[in-house]
């Protein structure tokens, strides 16, 4: 039978062929473990054996002061650190994209550099920098801002601030990469048009640049939110969650429940799924906010 040229081969099937490899690996190594751990969330281990306990693990969360504290901390990081970081990244990207800038390569590379450091390594560095005889205290004392060294990591507010500063250092440049590449894809004519219309720099940023960057801003916002909810290495290595659990994050608490305390994988799984649930809600909010503005 003669084939109609226009129908052609079954492209849908080709599509699946492209996806097949990733899909297979994904089913095997993400979905299956995720489902198994979801089942764990309804179990509790006693004497080396798991028993079904229904919703007990979920109920326990609401009475668990440490968990609630960790949730509060995590949201605090999210509300403060993510916007500052994204704004800073955007400003840096715009500046780095400036046609008046000399030694572009040097500036770009230097600003991107922090994001290559391993989390363990940079956490150790930051802990040492903010210690009592660390460089930060030395500089502040030399400048006359402080009379005697300040214990940053022992004051709950400042300990959080140090975590946030550390994260800003590590992740801002990373987001700059995304913004810069997106900026370079905005046609130059758009900016020129704005200039002709007499817009100043700030107006151009908010009326032209940011709207153009909306998809990438959304992407980085979701990524950062996601990252914050999974924040672990920094608090683990810089403050160990202290003082008085004031820097403890949910992921850190999950880790503690699984590996530091008597292993309670059931409860840890339940908390993990609570995090998943929260992330989905946040993503929906972010998408709808972005949708409305457009």
């Amino acid at each position: 039978m003669k084939r109609h040229k226009k129908t052609g081969p079954n492209y849908n099937r080709y599509g699946w062929a492209f996806i097949a490899m990733a899909f297979l690996l994904y089913l095997l190594f993400t979905i299956y473990p995720a489902v198994e751990s979801l089942a764990l969330a309804f179990q509790s281990m006693e004497g080396g054996k798991y028993t079904f306990v229904g919703l007990k693990n979920f109920k326990r969360m609401f009475g668990d002061a440490v968990f609630l504290q960790s949730l509060k901390n995590t949201f605090l990081y999210m509300v403060i650190q993510v916007p500052i970081m994204l704004m800073l990244a955007l400003i840096l990207a715009v500046l780095l994209n400036s046609r008046f800038l000399k030694w572009k390569g040097f500036f770009r590379t230097s600003i991107f550099l922090p994001c290559v450091t391993s989390l363990v390594a940079y956490s150790i560095l930051f802990k040492m920098m903010f210690s009592l005889d660390g460089i930060i205290n030395q500089v502040l004392m030399r400048l006359g801002i402080l009379e005697q060294p300040f214990q940053f990591l022992q004051n709950s507010t400042w300990a959080r601030a140090v975590i946030i500063i550390a994260m800003l250092w590590r992740w801002t440049g990373y987001n700059v990469i995304f913004y810069l590449s997106a900026l370079q894809n905005i046609p130059k004519e758009t900016f020129e048009a704005a200039k002709v219309d007499g817009a100043n720099a700030a107006q151009t940023l908010f009326r032209v640049t940011i709207p153009q960057l909306k998809p990438i801003v959304l992407l980085t916002a979701i990524m950062s939110t996601n990252g914050t909810l999974q924040l672990f290495d920094e608090t683990m290595n810089i403050t160990q969650g202290g003082p008085a659990n004031s820097t403890l994050t949910v992921s850190h608490y999950i880790y503690n429940q699984s590996f530091v305390y008597a292993p309670n994988f059931g409860y840890a799984s339940a908390i993990s799924y609570m995090v998943v649930f929260l992330m989905i809600i946040l993503a929906i909010i972010q998408f709808s906010v972005a949708g409305k503005e457009g």
Partner: peptide, 26 residues
């Protein structure tokens, strides 16, 4: 494919520590 894709995106949100024990078993 869109359904599968949505699944992919959703699973970005599962903390790795939640998958670790089953993965180790595998």
């Amino acid at each position: 494919k869109n359904v599968v894709y949505a699944m992919f995106l959703l699973s970005m949100m599962i903390p790795f520590s939640a998958q670790m024990i089953p993965l180790f078993k595998m």
